[in-house]
Design a protein around this nucleic acid. Structure first.
Lengths: 244, 244
DNA sequence: ACGCCGCCTGTAAGTCCTTACAGCTGTAAT
DNA sequence: ATTACAGCTGTAAGGACTTACAGGCGGCGT
């Protein structure tokens, strides 16, 4: 037994980012990883720098990664966006044909990573309420056999989610944990708004007047502390109140 | 080593829900659990029955659970909505005072569950892109010591996410996996719309005419295959294109 | 009985969004 | 050179939303 559930409290008890980082670092070293990283809300297209990064990756690699815009290229990122399962890298048996321009760029990226000190590792996607998504990576300077990686993947996977639970409160723009209480009607109206219906159409669906729908949406908007229907929909979705 | 990463392919290879269910059942039994359940998009407030359920929970318990509206009461549900870490139950050392009406109802629920054949178990929250959320539960008829549960929690945690990756494609209303490509401007405009800005305000922020903002949002709406700005925001959020 | 709350409805003025028309610039690939 | 595409802008009409005013009904707990 390498890493267990008892680490939840250990990580939750950290009051500062620095304390959390050193705790994670010790855990990662104890199972043979030199580097680790926790990234949240990684922006794929836009560059408003809303992401949160924590961890012990080499600074030169992080800056190189972003200046080269590897976010758009990195297959690990693409995997984390779409899946919930860990990814072991590098994956040597890539089925893409070698003449592909994109895959050669990917190979170059992994080679550069190895030279800097990221030979092999595991990346675990983390998803959370509010459509936040991110990843936790563990990397080693030296090569680790795939079989050995597989052995500890379950523990790393759990650890990654503990890190996410403990670390996301430090991320900027974290939502207030207490979503306001909306009535059943308000939720219902918001749901149909998110589906693209107009007030009049929702009125028909719920057998009430158009004015009543407007009334409920108004109340919901106030409770959510936003202005405008679009913002209300956005806030309701990321608060988990509706799932369109 | 109980359950490893090799189960990803095993579960992904299942073509039908029945095949998937029997595979999961075999895995669960191999580590001592009599019942398991996979639930996705569980509705807390409204009852439009958009949820997806798969698994081997006793039918009588499931129907009892929903007729009693335990969804609003169940602390396991509340935990799963807000966290990414597993929950071992029942938790005997609940700090809530015994005079509380709510906590006594919770105790009653757990007692009823035990009588039906759900004595102890583990529930793992699963979150995914698109603000989908759900849970995977493993339960045993007989009591399992907390220490023994803790031993296999990492493996159950990973298995739960493999189940989620493999099972959500069967859920109704699953999103198309291929989100349309939006340009940087379109994403930028959608982001500010989700924040509650008007076209004119976004124009000021981006130093373009109001008309241009309308133009970009129009294009984005068409690409997303929806009608209306609210629906575009909703679809963009659940597709992971913006994170407000 | 009273207050509180969820739920429901109406009118009206002003603002915002949607969609149709039409047109311009610059970059990159074939 | 031609095509394609991202980005940008304008006008105008009609529909939709926002906010202000005002009011009624029923259930629940004290």
């Amino acid at each position: 037994m390498f890493l267990g559930i008892e680490n939840i409290e250990l990580l939750q008890a950290c009051d500062t980012q620095e304390q959390l980082a050193s705790t994670i670092g010790a855990l990662a070293r104890s199972v043979g990883f030199d580097h680790w990283m926790y990234g949240l809300d990684l922006p794929i297209i836009d560059d408003r720098k809303g992401q949160y990064l924590l961890g012990g990756y080499p600074k030169e690699w992080v800056s190189h990664y972003f200046t080269q815009e590897y976010l758009r290229l990195d297959p690990v990122i693409a995997h984390c966006q779409a899946h919930a399962t860990p990814l072991l890298w590098p994956q040597r048996d890539d089925p893409t044909k070698p003449g592909d321009r994109r895959s050669s760029a990917v190979s170059r990226m992994f080679n550069e990573a190895r030279e800097i000190g990221l030979d092999s590792g595991v990346t675990i996607p983390v998803h959370g309420l509010g459509c936040h998504w991110g990843l936790v990576s563990f990397a080693s300077k030296t090569h680790i056999a795939t079989r050995d990686l597989q052995q500890i993947v379950p523990h790393l996977h759990l650890l990654a989610h503990c890190i996410h639970d403990a670390g996301r409160r430090f991320a900027p723009g974290a939502l207030p944990v207490t979503a306001p209480h909306l009535t059943a009607r308000e939720v219902e109206c918001l749901h149909w708004v998110a589906a693209g219906k107009t007030s009049w159409e929702i009125g028909k669906l719920l057998n009430v007047a158009e004015r009543t729908v407007v009334f409920h949406l108004q109340n919901a908007t106030h409770k959510l502390g936003v202005s405008g229907r679009q913002a209300a929909v956005a806030r309701a979705i990321v608060s988990g109140l509706i799932t369109p």
